[in-house]
Design a protein around this nucleic acid. Structure first.
Length: 376
RNA sequence: GGGGAGAUACCAGAGCGGUCAAAUGGGACAGACUGUAAAUCUGUUGGCGCAGCCUUCGGAGGUUCGAAUCCUCCUCUCCCCA
């Protein structure tokens, strides 16, 4: 994998570049739609590709391991062939599930024992087998196994957790180097910075991770409930210690405004369930602000969802019609909401890239952030 | 014509002497959602000067310290038989 950093903003740390992978190039900054179980919920590959213009999507190790299982994925020839997405894929390691499914797991030095949320069966995840699973899934970018710390999190816990994540990283690297992709193309392992909300731990973690000479670096453990200002401060801090010549991935972020702010801090890659989950639940992100399409005020608004939108759904359906679909509990409503939001997110990062290249990013960002947060 | 059942908040429907401004669904309205256990979850849904008070359970009377709950009559609905 190669990262060509093409432009750097003069007034901020924003960068525009290209990541070259075995399944094609990714123009950064980029937003990656989340397809946990191998499916971006409610979205056809054709829409994802042609309409939303996604360049890379996510999958999840924990979920794909449980269902359909690595056996099926190997038989299929990897996730790309299984789900029909020929472009790059990134898989999360299950580190987020250590946090989100904390009720259903036991953590120790060796790894994590999960009690399956599907059938209650027990499954041990270690840095080694998480690498093996991600090899079999066959994603272009695979993530180190980490513990995403909760918020709030006391210093001692954060410190121990960070040290554990570092030890696990070394084991991940070891296993990664001793194995290869069963499908014959290149995979890349991204290490993850932890350290909760503590600046000294974050610095320590970033420096540790940066020493690993990886093809990309991720920032984890943020957007788990801490104030946004804290998230921005720590992202800024961590970016200072991560190599400038490699892509940086801020995991799980975020709102459109979060993304623009963090692009300006030097982040290149983002993923978040927000455009799909919130889109399914009737919350639309637009360049004019946020719409709750279920609200009564849209019932007789026959104007387009977004007349300047980039997806075919935007001028094609009216707000009144989309509201009707949600109120009537029609599955088309959540599908349109998801397509719109994803297309908007991809438009937003594409526009950010253009502005960086044009040297207009900082000015544009300031105006956009205000508009994006406005509630319509 | 004979016999039976019932009328409860926007709708359906519990409640069958006090702990009832009235369960539970649905609907309506609003909110939440950040590496997805989520087509999910939460709140509000008689009025007000709101830790209290006022007016509500088809209508009118009555019994009782106290009635959505018991009695009488009235109005209306549904079911069965002829």
């Amino acid at each position: 994998m190669k990262f060509n950093k093409e432009h750097v903003d003069t007034l901020s740390s924003a960068r525009a570049g290209t990541i070259e992978t075995a399944h094609g190039d990714i123009k950064t900054p980029i937003f990656m739609p989340v397809g946990t179980v191998g499916s971006v919920k409610g979205i056809h590959m054709k829409e994802l590709n042609e309409d939303i213009k996604a360049q890379i999507i996510l999958g999840n190790t924990y979920h794909l391991y449980l269902r359909p299982g690595t056996g099926i994925l190997e038989q299929a020839g990897g996730l790309h062939k299984f789900n029909g997405w020929g472009k790059p894929i990134l898989t999360d390691s299950g580190g987020y599930q250590v946090y989100s499914l904390s009720e259903n797991r036991k953590l120790n030095e060796e790894g994590v024992v999960f009690r399956s949320h599907i059938d209650g069966s027990k499954h041990t995840f270690t840095p080694e087998n998480v690498m093996d699973i991600q090899r079999k899934i066959g994603a272009d970018i695979i993530m180190a196994f980490d513990e995403c710390t909760p918020f709030p999190c006391d210093y001692k816990y954060a410190e121990n957790s960070m040290k554990l994540t570092h030890k696990w990283l070394d084991r991940c690297i070891q296993q990664f180097e001793n194995t290869e992709c069963p499908y014959g193309y290149e995979q890349n392992l991204f290490p993850i910075v932890q350290g909760s909300v503590y600046a000294d731990l974050r610095k320590q973690s970033a420096e540790y991770i940066a020493s690993k000479n990886a093809n990309g670096y991720a920032i984890g453990g943020l957007s788990v409930g801490e104030p946004v200002e804290v998230m921005y401060e720590l992202t800024e801090l961590v970016c200072k210690y991560l190599p400038t010549e490699s892509p940086r991935y801020l995991m799980g972020v975020g709102t459109p405004a979060n993304i623009l702010e963090c692009i300006s801090l030097g982040v290149d890659m983002f993923d978040c369930v927000m455009p799909t989950r919130n889109g399914r639940n009737g919350m639309l992100f637009t360049s004019e602000g946020i719409i709750n399409i279920k609200n009564e005020k849209w019932k007789n608004d026959f104007s387009p969802i977004d007349s300047n939108g980039t997806s075919f759904v935007d001028p094609f359906y009216s707000k009144a019609y989309l509201r009707h679909l949600f109120v009537a509990n029609e599955m088309l409503g959540p599908m349109i909401g998801s397509i719109h939001n994803l297309a908007f997110y991809l438009w937003l990062v594409g526009e950010a890239r253009n502005k960086i290249i044009e040297g207009e990013f900082s000015k544009w960002k300031t105006i956009m952030v205000k508009r994006l947060q406005h509630r319509l």
